[in-house]
Design a protein around this nucleic acid. Structure first.
Lengths: 134, 134
DNA sequence: CGCCGGTAAGTTGTGCACAACTGAATTGTG
DNA sequence: CACAATTCAGTTGTGCACAACTTACCGGCG
């Protein structure tokens, strides 16, 4: 069962890869951009909570996004410990190029909309349960 | 949808991690051992086909398993290009310690046996379809 | 005020995942 | 037989994922 999960996840990111290459993003970078397109700016901690990633993964990832000119990292004035990721103009503009990606993947999945929806909710329940065992 | 897949997969390996730590294995190493416990010896290419991994991933992984004394890599006599992974006595012995792991994970999943079975087949169909689009 | 536990981000080190490439061995074809 | 194309394992380089640790900063308490 878990091998099926592992394989499917890798197969999905493999389908994303060539599409995201046009945007110059990796899959985790794309996830971060999705979150920021939704609401911005976001602290490293908030990004980590939404994506389930820690600062050890996010810090270098955000640095790369900053080097690409998509994101700016700014230290908070009120709390000097916090760093917020702000979108640049280029970062905001990229969202329109990315708008077709979810549909592209849904097409590649070869499952009906119902099946996809059911799969998604089952996976979310599973993730919840697995996290609870920690 | 794909984020659900990505999260669930990471959550599953996170549940495996402490259990596999007792065996001194990572999750991909455990997958290789599972394949070898099933049938042995296996060439790097065959392992790669069953797991969907390439030599760039498997070569160093097998070297680590060899360094742990679980596996021996031997060049084939007939075809000097090929390298086969053989289990050592210790490698074979480890399988009994690992026997309880699948059940442990099924318990942690918090889904019924039916739901797990259905999830597995859906994921397999999905993986198939995603590979086809390449 | 001074210190102290806790928190936020970053750093270091290990091990995948995968692309691109290398080098050796084999196979197919003229 | 010779040699070009292919196959196989391994190497190199990049980017996650995560544990363990470090550093800077906050907020509270004596």
């Amino acid at each position: 069962m878990c091998f099926a999960l592992y394989s499917a996840s890798r197969a999905a990111t493999a389908v994303y890869r060539p599409v995201l290459e046009d945007l110059g993003l990796t899959y985790p970078q794309y996830l971060v951009m999705l979150v920021l397109w939704e609401a911005e700016p976001k602290g490293v901690k908030e990004l980590g909570e939404e994506l389930g990633l820690d600062s050890g993964t996010l810090s270098p990832l955000l640095k790369r996004l900053e080097a690409m000119g998509l994101v700016e990292r700014r230290r908070s004035g009120e709390d000097e410990r916090r760093v917020a990721a702000h979108l640049t103009t280029a970062g905001r503009a990229l969202s329109s190029k990315a708008s077709g990606i979810p549909q592209h993947l849904a097409d590649a999945a070869g499952l009906s909309a119902d099946e996809l929806e059911q799969l998604r909710t089952t996976l979310e329940r599973l993730t919840e349960a697995l996290h609870r065992t920690r």
